[in-house]
Amino acid sequence: MTLIDYLSTILLIAGALFFLAGTLGLLRFPDIYTRLHALTKADNVGLGLIVIGLALQSESLASAGKLILIWLLVMFAGASVSNLIASGALQRGIRLWKR
């Protein structure tokens, strides 16, 4: 394994851990708004770390660019959709969780 390999392995594992955090949040957080936090933030960071880790390994600049493009698209769509769901939930009177 080269230095690049070690670096991308670290990034990939870190990304997977963010995904784990996102799933834990989805399963354990008490209401829809907190679950939205867990998902959109953790998963997009996780995907970002994985994308960077894979881009280091990719054969050409073009394919690295495509990876980053996919990440940007997922972030853009995810951010918009989570906003839509949150505002829709507020409109429908889903209450915020209080301790």
């Binding site: 853009f76 769509a77 918009s80 959709v81 906003n83 839509l84 505002s87």
Partner: peptide, 8 residues
Amino acid sequence: PGPVLDTL
């Protein structure tokens, strides 16, 4: 559509 949906 609201501004977010419109932009999306």
